[in-house]
Design a protein around this nucleic acid. Structure first.
Lengths: 220, 220
DNA sequence: CGTCTTCTTGAGCCACTTCAAGGTAAGTGG
DNA sequence: CCACTTACCTTGAAGTGGCTCAAGAAGACG
C-alpha cells in the first residue's frame, strides 16, 4: 500500500505504512457514524483518539478570533487524521458529508509504538505525510486565484477520481476557506475555466476535466 | 529541555526530546561552517543528513517555475532541520549569515530509531514540531499585511530575544518571501508600525518592541 | 409549491503590487 | 581617508486582482 503525495507538478510515492497503524488487531477501534457538519473534535479538546475515514469526508480547520476560517486539509476515505504532537487538538474537524470513521485510542497507539517498530514507523509516516501536505498548502497560498484553483482541482482529481469525473463533497465556502479566497472568487474562477473549456461544470459539485494540461501549466 | 511552539496568541510547550537526537554519542556528527548565502542542500538532492544549527541562521525555501520563492521556515541556533519523509529533499536550505551547523547521517539516525525508543520519539517530535510550524505558517498566509508582520515580529522576538531588542538576520526580501508579500509592503508596514510607536527601527535589521500589546492584537 | 440554502454574476472599491526613484550602509581600491 | 561601487532599504504614484456589497438563479427538501 502506498500513500500519494503532491509535490508541485510531479507526484511522488513514499512507501508509507499508514494502513498498518490500523491493521494490527490491537489497534482496531469502533466505526462511528457522523452526520453532515457534525463535529468530530474541536480545538482545545484533549487529543484522545486517532481517526481514519472509511466513507464520507472531513474538513480540518482553525478559526481566527474575528471569525475567519482556514481549512487546513480535507480528508477522504483511507486518510488518517487527528495525529497531533501535543496532548490537545489545535485544530477542529467536522464531517463534510455523512461519514463513517474508525477511531483508535491515541494512548494505545503510542504505547504500542514503544515496542512495535512498525507502528512507530507508521506514526512517523502519518505525521510526515501531514507535514508534506501542509507545506504544499503553504506553497499554494502564495499563488493567484487561478493557480490555486488549478492546484485544488488537480489535487481532488487525484484523490477522488472516477473516470475523469471529479465529485466534490465540499461547498464553495469550504473551497474558499481552503484556498484563502472568497466564495465569489472561487465561483468566478471556476466559471472562467469552464468558459475556456478547461473544465466542465456538470453540476455545481461535479467537475469534468477537459484540459488537464492547462491546469497543470497553472500548477507551476 | 523543551521546545517552544507558537499557537496563535498562546504559547504551548510540548515535552520534546529533540536535543536527544543529537545527545547520543553515536549520533554526534561534525560541525561544518557555511558562508553567507551558501547552499546547505538543494531541492531534489538525496536527503543524506539531518542538521542542527549551532550558530548563524538558515532559510528553507521552495522555488516555483516562474521564480517566485516561498520561504517555508527560518532556523535559528538550536533548531533541527532537514528531516524529511521521503528520500529526497523537496526543499532547499541556505545559510542566511555565516553559520556553524552540525550534520548527522540520516541513515544512522533512522537505524538507531529502530532499536532506541528515545531516538524514535525524538524523530517524531522533530517532525511534529515542523508540522505545527508549517500549519501556523499556512494560517499566517490568509491574514493581511499588518497581521502577517505582527506575527513575524512576535515570532522572532520569541526566538532571538535579547533584552527587548530583536536582531533580524534576514533581509527584507527574505521576510517578504516568508510572509508572501513584496519587499515594498514589508518595508512600508514596518515604517507604519514605527510611525505609531508600535516598534522602533533602531537599524534596518534591529527592532525594539515598544507596544507588544498592539502587535498581539493584530496576531488574532 | 414554497422555503431555505447554495451558487453565480455584476459593479465598485481597496489593499497590495508594480514601477520608479532616491537614500543609506558597508566594502574596496586608490 | 575619501571617492566609488554595490547591495539593501525606503518612499511615492499609479495600476490591478481579488474583495465587498448586492441581486438574482439554481437546487434541495419537506
Amino acid at each position: 500500500m502506498q500513500t500519494q503525495i503532491q509535490l508541485g507538478e510531479s507526484t511522488a510515492y513514499i512507501v508509507a505504512n499508514q494502513p498498518m497503524l490500523f491493521a494490527k488487531a490491537e489497534l482496531k477501534g469502533p466505526a462511528i457514524n457522523y452526520a453532515r457538519n457534525e463535529e468530530i473534535f474541536g480545538e482545545g479538546e484533549a487529543a484522545e483518539y486517532v481517526y481514519k475515514v472509511i466513507s464520507g469526508s472531513v474538513r480540518a480547520f482553525r478559526i481566527l478570533s474575528d471569525g475567519r476560517r482556514q481549512i487546513m486539509a480535507f480528508y477522504m476515505p483511507g486518510d488518517i487524521f487527528g495525529v497531533e504532537p501535543g496532548d490537545d487538538h489545535v485544530i477542529s474537524c467536522e464531517a463534510i458529508s455523512a461519514s463513517t470513521i474508525v477511531v483508535v485510542k491515541r494512548a494505545t497507539l503510542f504505547k504500542t509504538a514503544e515496542r512495535d517498530v512498525e507502528v512507530a514507523r507508521g506514526l512517523l509516516a502519518v505525521t510526515a505525510a501531514e507535514l508534506r501536505r501542509s507545506q504544499n498548502h503553504a506553497l499554494l497560498l502564495i499563488k493567484n486565484a487561478q493557480e490555486r484553483l488549478a492546484a485544488f482541482i488537480l489535487e481532488m482529481a487525484d484523490r477522488v477520481n472516477r473516470k475523469g469525473c471529479v465529485n466534490l463533497p465540499m461547498s464553495r465556502q469550504d473551497i474558499a476557506d481552503y484556498l484563502g479566497l472568497t466564495i465569489e472568487t472561487v465561483s468566478r474562477t471556476l466559471s472562467q475555466f469552464a468558459a475556456r473549456s478547461t473544465i466542465e461544470l456538470v453540476a455545481s459539485r461535479e467537475i469534468v476535466l477537459r484540459n488537464r494540461a492547462a491546469l497543470s501549466d497553472l500548477n507551476s
